[in-house]
């Protein structure tokens, strides 16, 4: 187990392992997403209050939760990079920032479009919405800060520090709707019976899109990290050989 983790820390091993792993991950991910989206959009029963409008939930909740745990992953990678100076950890952190910002944007946008017909407004300075908007800005800040440095090492050091500082925001977002009862509802409890407010007919497809999106996060982060590895290790012999091989194929 440790040996396996240790090997993932080497850029070359990370690249080679993901070469065989990625197609499988993509297959499972696309399957989960297609099942979840078709089920959620067409086959789940309408909500008794919001009608068909609630179907936005199948992308809103998973991308919002996703944006938060991508941040956790990015922070863990930033810490690993700072403590043990693991290069792959820094590359994963850099890739996560872009993916996380995208998820944040989707969560905010779908929330706004859902809020208009349900609350009557696209946006309101509610605690949860505001702290989530700050998360988006933190992501943008981390990306901008890294690219502001000419030196790769200074850029990643600065981005790591900002990433770790931004962790403070996460519990605020998660508990915002519980601490301050403004507008956004706290997470719904799942009911096991079909008579409950949140029956399995509605939440089961959400689990499909949820796990599908977790898979998609890994697909996106791995694809970006592989590019980053090729670029940073471009002088290594194994990359040179790979480039030659790819040229022969094209």
């Amino acid at each position: 187990m440790w040996q396996w983790l240790y090997k993932l820390g080497s850029p070359r091993h990370f690249y080679e392992m993901t070469t065989s792993f990625l197609p499988w991950l993509k297959g499972v991910t696309y399957f989960l997403l297609i099942v979840g989206l078709v089920w959620g959009l067409g086959f789940a029963p309408p909500d008794y209050q919001m009608g068909d409008n609630y179907r936005i939930i199948y992308i809103h909740v998973p991308t919002a939760l996703g944006a938060m745990w991508i941040y956790v992953m990015m922070a863990v990678m930033a810490a690993m990079h700072m403590i043990w100076n693991i290069k792959v950890a820094d590359m994963v952190a850099k890739s996560s920032a872009l993916v996380g910002a995208g998820f944040c944007a989707v969560a905010l946008f779908t929330g706004a479009v859902w809020g208009r017909p349900t609350w009557g407004v696209y946006w309101i300075w509610d605690a949860k919405l505001t702290s989530f908007l700050i998360l988006f800005f933190v992501y943008i800040g981390v990306i901008a800060l890294r690219s502001a440095f000419d030196s790769e090492t200074s850029g990643s050091k600065a981005a790591s520090v900002l990433t770790l500082v931004g962790v403070v925001n996460l519990p605020i977002i998660y508990y915002a709707a519980v601490w301050w009862n403004t507008l956004h509802q706290p997470p719904s409890e799942l009911s096991l019976s079909s008579q409950g407010a949140n029956p399995p007919e509605i939440w089961i497809p959400a689990f499909f899109t949820g796990f599908g999106l977790i898979g998609l996060v890994f697909v996106f982060v791995i694809m970006r990290t592989r590019n980053e590895i090729l670029w940073r290790e471009r002088r290594a012999q194994w990359v040179q050989d790979l480039v030659k091989q790819e040229a022969g194929r094209a």
Binding site: P46, G51, I59, V113
Partner: peptide
């Protein structure tokens, strides 16, 4: 038609 919510539902999914 999404029960009258077509604009909101499809706009959200399109952005996604």
């Amino acid at each position: 038609a999404m029960g009258g919510y077509a604009f909101y539902v499809w706009l959200a999914y399109a952005f996604f």
